[in-house]
Every structure is written in C-alpha cells, then in structure tokens.
Design a protein around this nucleic acid. Structure first.
Length: 342
DNA sequence: AATGAGGGCAACCGCTCCATT
DNA sequence: GAATGGAGCGGTTGCCCTCAT
C-alpha cells in the first residue's frame, strides 16, 4: 500500500474542530513511504536509546508516525542486522522446509533465518515460491511432461505406483485436514498439491518390499527422507525435479516432517490461529528426540542409502513414529548445519 | 519510443495475545 | 473478571519497476 511520500497526512483531511491531544496526534500521523530523513531520525533514536514503547519512540524521535509504523520500519528495514538482497538457494530451501513445518507462520520461519524478516519471507513466498509451485503444478499436469507418470517408462520405474498414488491421496487428505485445522492458507494447499506430485515421483516408497511398511501414513510421512542434489530431490539414488531444480544442497538431506505434527499435538482448537504460535514452538521445544530421525541425520547424513536404513531402523524397532516425538529444535540445528546460512 | 501487464516489495490494516490497571 | 493499551502477527493492498509487445 505504498503511498506518495509525504502524501497522507491526515491533518489535511480534518479541520481544527477537534482539540484533543490524541486527535492532534492522529491528525498529524504520516503514512506511506518513509523518507530518508525519517529513517535517519528513527535510526538515530533507536541506536541511542534502544527499543522501548513504540508510541513513545515515535513521539520522542520527532516522527509523525504511529508506533506501529515505526516498529515495522525498524524491524523490516532499519535494523542493523537485517539482511537484504536475494535469497540464497540454501535460504530458499530452508524456507520451503520450514513452511512445510510451520505453514504461514512467517515470524516463526524468520527466526530461523538470521537477518531475514517475516515480511520479506512472506513476500518471497507469495511471489516467487507460489509462482514456482503453480508452474510446477501446471508442468506436471501437462500430459507431455517428462514426468508423465502414465508413460510406460515411468511406469517401469514406478513399481507399486498404485499404492503410491493412493498414499499420496492419503497425504493430500491428511494435509488438507491439517490445513483446515490449523487455519493454514491456500499457499499450504498449493504446497500440498506439490507434495502430492513429489510423492508420485518417488517410486521406491511404494516399491519398498518391507512388510508392514507404512507407506505414507501420517507417521511415515513424517520421516520421509529426501536427499537433495543440485537438480532436485533424490530418493534411493533417483533424482526428481521439484520447482525446476537448482535448489542446491549437494549431498545433503532434506527432511520433510509431518505437518500433522503441528496439529495432533494441539488438538485444542483454540490453540489455532494466533495462540498456537507459542504452543507449537513450546511443544516442539519440549518434544522428545525422535531417535529414528537422529539416526538418519547423525549417522547417515551423506549417504543416500541411509534413507532406507532409517526407515528400516524405525520399523524394526517397532516404532510408531508418533508425531510428538519429533524434535523441532534438533531438526533446526541440523537444518542450520546443512544450510550454512550467513 | 510508447504502453500495458505482471511481479516485487514496502507498508497498512485488522486481528489476537498479553500485561497492566 | 473486565477494560485498556501496546506489541506482534498474517493478510492484503497498491505503487514502482521491469519487460514484453
């Protein structure tokens, strides 16, 4: 909602009939783009006095802005540690990953990307990533794409494809369910769509001849391990493209944890929307470490076949990968270790 | 060179949460 | 317990820029 600089001073819309100080303040409140002078004022004030009550800051800094506006400007633009410029492939990957965990909780995602603001990430998602997802969806829905799962070649590779498709539907349903319950936005729906496509391209999950292999039920979905190379997702040594590839992360793992996590432990529907922000974080901070996940990450970080080892370890151990056993903080440490953001 | 479309991004809006009174 | 105000969050808007025509 960019407005002309200096254009929207409400005083001009009112006359002097209202004499209260608060009204005067409101009358003088400036909106729209920040001028360099305003930036300088706010920056100086913040550096000298530090953060406090934002309405006081606005007043004391001599700004005709509301505290809210000052806060936003500081956080999104003036803060010394704010990182600007294009997102690196690693950052992109981490955003995708975190979004699969957290949905549109941009502030939560932003805390995992040093120097990036929630607004920036949100904008990035709403423009770039959504576009890619849409493109990816339309590409794969095209009957002539190289990923056409109905092609004979593909079918050869896709042993057990039928179950995969059923399973991916399951995932979709699950995801949708989680989406509904957690009030996630349409972007999550898009992502779910994309996840389905991804799942359709993972032949070996359906091919995995392990009795009782719980293909893509909520638990297994939670531990779906996907390796990344420069061109996309690798699974059992096969490479599948997502988002047109080029997401980097050579020889590294990319875990797609279950979105179900986010809700099964938060059945209290009141926790949804805003107040589940904290409950989710707290929940994740308090969960026990999923040893299966840690086995995979810690012991087999750079080996594709480790993925299946991880699965088998899980099921041999008879683990029901309960969603509450998933250690978010641990994951984040691992994530940061393989994304080397800076 | 002119212009229209689309994308990127900064900033506002409305809402909720939380602390204080 | 209710009211109030500040802070923070996600959604949305609309201006500016770039690019295709």
């Amino acid at each position: 909602m960019r407005k002309p600089i200096g254009g929207a001073i409400k005083a001009e819309q009112n006359n002097s009939s209202n004499n209260s100080s608060s009204s005067l303040m409101m009358m003088k409140m400036r909106k729209g783009l920040w001028s360099p002078e305003e930036d300088e004022k706010l920056m100086k004030y913040m550096l000298n006095n530090g953060q406090g009550c934002w309405s006081d800051i606005a007043r004391n800094a001599g700004l005709q802005r509301c505290g809210k506006s000052c806060r936003l400007r500081w956080i999104n633009y003036l803060r010394p540690d704010v990182k600007r410029g294009a997102f690196s492939p690693q950052e992109e990957q981490l955003i995708l990953h975190l979004h699969s965990l957290l949905g549109n909780r941009w502030s939560q995602i932003a805390t995992r990307l040093p120097g990036r603001t929630d607004n920036e990430i949100k904008n990035f998602w709403n423009s770039t990533v959504k576009k890619r997802l849409k493109k990816s969806t339309s590409d794969s829905s095209s009957p002539n794409t190289s990923h056409d799962s109905s092609s004979p070649d593909h079918r050869d590779i896709m042993g057990g494809r039928t179950s995969m498709q059923d399973s991916s539907n399951h995932v979709m349903a699950m995801y949708m369910d989680a989406t509904q319950r957690s009030s996630l936005s349409s972007s999550s729906f898009l992502q779910a769509m994309n996840m389905n496509q991804m799942m359709e391209r993972f032949p070996l999950m359906g091919d995995h001849d392990v009795p009782n292999m719980p293909i893509l039920n909520a638990s297994c979905y939670g531990s779906t391990q996907v390796g990344m190379d420069g061109n996309g997702i690798s699974y059992h040594g096969c490479t599948y493209e997502i988002f047109g590839g080029n997401l980097g992360l050579e020889d590294e793992f990319f875990n797609i944890p279950p979105l179900e996590n986010m809700t099964t432990n938060n059945q209290d529907t009141k926790s949804e929307n805003h107040n589940d922000r904290t409950s989710i974080t707290n929940n994740m901070n308090n969960v026990n470490t999923n040893h299966c996940y840690n086995n995979i990450i810690n012991n087999n970080k750079h080996q594709i076949h480790a993925i299946t080892d991880g699965f088998e370890n899980c099921w041999e151990a008879g683990d029901e990968l309960k969603v509450e056993e998933w250690d978010f903080e641990e994951l984040m440490r691992e994530s940061s270790s393989f994304t080397s953001l800076g």
